[in-house]
Design a protein around this nucleic acid. Structure first.
Lengths: 203, 203
DNA sequence: AACAATTTTAAACACTTGTTTAAAATAATT
DNA sequence: AATTATTTTAAACAAGTGTTTAAAATTGTT
């Protein structure tokens, strides 16, 4: 081993993630990434063979990381209500940190659904399993209204993603500055949380 | 005037809209559009001068149409509750008809916010004006909880958009077929509507 | 220090992109 | 019918794309 090849590899991955998040696969060029990583264009192919391979690597790692953090929350020994609140807060944090994530995930999955299925192939159903059981029990106990967790689980994601996916659109349609949007986003989160809890939990 | 130049022009616009919706500005090529419209590549430039000019034309007309239909609803002489229900149903219909619209709007606005502001420059605030007044009156009357219409208005859009923007992602993460997703979308709408109305309106 | 292996570079490659051109085909006008 | 104007086409253009190559620079090994 020589120099700091791992550092270079990591530098490229980080730059790639940044650029892909910002411009998407179609909009990002290998030269954009090279410039962001301050390396020669050919190096991306030296380390990752192709733009597409680099992309899927970055994409998969981001998705896996996102789902892992969700799983961690869902496996905690707490009530459904606590889990949902923590999930909402967590999702908000993640997307607030980088508002491009929401639209990036939606976008790239739509651009190439087959690639998503083939190369990522995540089974979200298995992950929910323990949560689903717990949810249904609390429904039986009369703590939660009669609704399927299959309806609620995707809803949680969507409710938070929605705030940030339409960020730029909202800012322009309603003439907000970035600071104003940040305030707006927090307000949205508050409303969504109250709305969801009031709807789901009895009493 | 000769042949059916208007037809050709319209044919290109329709094809462009279809392709742009599907692939976005970056992902769509002038050759894709030409093929979809069954015309020669050069014709798109003959009628519209450039890919970008064609794009903004299509984009603007779509946005204007979408906002106009919203405005029509907001100007009706009905209660806030009736307006919100009609707005939710209408937005759902629009996006259900073409699930690409939601992500397309968000995406293209983010890709080029300046172009959006410069070339579209829509004042959504003015459109809301009459609704805002009505909303605040109903809050005063004690019909609606104490909340600003500035919070609710963008929320309505987001709540419905969210269902369809993440369509492909949801389908793959939760392993749904298209038919299953359609059922899921209707269920989501029902929940969102109930949730919002229960939250907003007193008693 | 001399050699080998690895990493980095500049340059070029083949291909796709949006766009233009100049000729052909078609329609309108006289 | 002849001429003009308009529409359509095939072909080429310049610029940008991902990728490869072969030489240079750097690092590791003997």
């Amino acid at each position: 081993m020589t120099a700091n090849p791992v550092d270079t590899e990591e530098k490229i991955k980080e730059a790639a993630q940044r650029i892909f998040l910002e411009k998407g696969f179609d909009g990002a060029t290998i030269r954009d990434i090279a410039e962001a990583a301050q390396i020669n264009t050919a190096l991306t192919n030296y380390y990752f063979r192709s733009k597409e391979k680099l992309f899927w690597l970055v994409y998969e790692s981001m998705l896996k990381e996102a789902l892992k953090s969700v799983q961690t929350i869902m496996e905690k020994p707490t009530s459904v209500k606590e889990k949902l609140v923590e999930l909402l807060d967590h999702m908000f944090e993640v997307h607030a940190e980088n508002p491009n994530k929401a639209i990036f995930f939606m976008n790239e999955c739509r651009r190439n659904p087959q690639g998503f299925a083939d190369k990522i192939g995540i089974n979200c159903g298995a992950m929910e399993q323990c949560f689903n059981t717990q949810f249904e029990e609390e429904v039986k106990k009369g703590l939660i209204i009669d609704i399927s967790p299959d309806t609620i689980f995707p809803l949680i994601f969507g409710l938070i993603q929605q705030i940030f996916a339409g960020r730029e659109l909202t800012m322009h349609l309603f003439q907000m500055s970035e600071a104003e949007f940040d305030k707006h986003a927090l307000e949205q989160k508050k409303v969504i949380k109250e709305m969801l809890l009031k709807y789901l939990f009895i009493k």
